[in-house]
Amino acid sequence: MNLENYRIIIRPLITEKSTLQKETGNIIAFEVAAKANKIEVRRAVEALFNVKVEEVRLFNVRGKLKRLGRNIGRRSDWRKAYVRLKAGEKAPEFFEGV
């Protein structure tokens, strides 16, 4: 098993938006390593879930400012990936076995 793939794909994002996109556009969402590029993400997804990827879109999410009284904190920035699978590919069920 190539652990490098797991370093790139951190976790799937399971939200209302991502579920909807999965159903309508065959797009799945992940949190990925902050330094990952599209090619690495594509390879990792193809290897881990055994599917063919059509397109990868990446962008950085800025961590939210959180304050507790007079203390200001900031959540870490992270990188999100929307991965569109090739037509006819079936998206993996992340909840299986949870």
Binding site: L13, I14, T15, E16, S18, T19
Partner: peptide, 8 residues
């Protein structure tokens, strides 16, 4: 990640 009542 889901609003209450909107979970598939």
């Amino acid at each position: 990640g889901f609003r209450a009542g909107k979970v598939p």
